[in-house]
């Protein structure tokens, strides 16, 4: 078993777990965490696809994809958390 296969299957497993959790949760926070897990899975597969055998340097292009993906994920997660907070604030004022 080469390292890239391990990474790829880990990635697929993470995507599956994330999708399952996303489908069954109704809590926004759970869903955000689930999407983060999915994205880690996608990232693992991307890193695995960069593997070109031991002794050879990995392909830098998929690694650049992963970096961009991480940046997008951080920004999107921040936006999602802001939305959750705002919804919470509105819920609080509704209670009063």
């Amino acid at each position: 078993m080469t390292p890239d296969i391990i990474y790829a299957f880990t990635g697929i497993g993470l995507i599956g777990m994330g999708l399952y959790r996303l489908a069954v949760s109704t809590q926004a926070l759970w869903q955000i965490v689930a999407v983060n897990v999915i994205s880690v899975g996608v990232g693992s597969i991307l890193i695995a696809s960069a593997y070109r055998g031991s002794g050879t340097a990995a392909d830098p292009v998929p690694q650049a994809f992963v970096l961009t993906g991480i940046v997008v994920l951080v920004a999107t997660t921040a936006a999602a958390l802001c939305l959750v907070r705002r919804i919470d604030e509105l819920a609080d004022t509704d209670d009063i």
Binding site: L22, Q31, P62, G69, A80
Partner: peptide, 22 residues
Amino acid sequence: LRYLIMGLVGSLLILLGVDYLY
């Protein structure tokens, strides 16, 4: 919020597909 989360899942799929195309 739902749009954002679903859109992110879509984006991740696109990213994965783009990597496969590459």
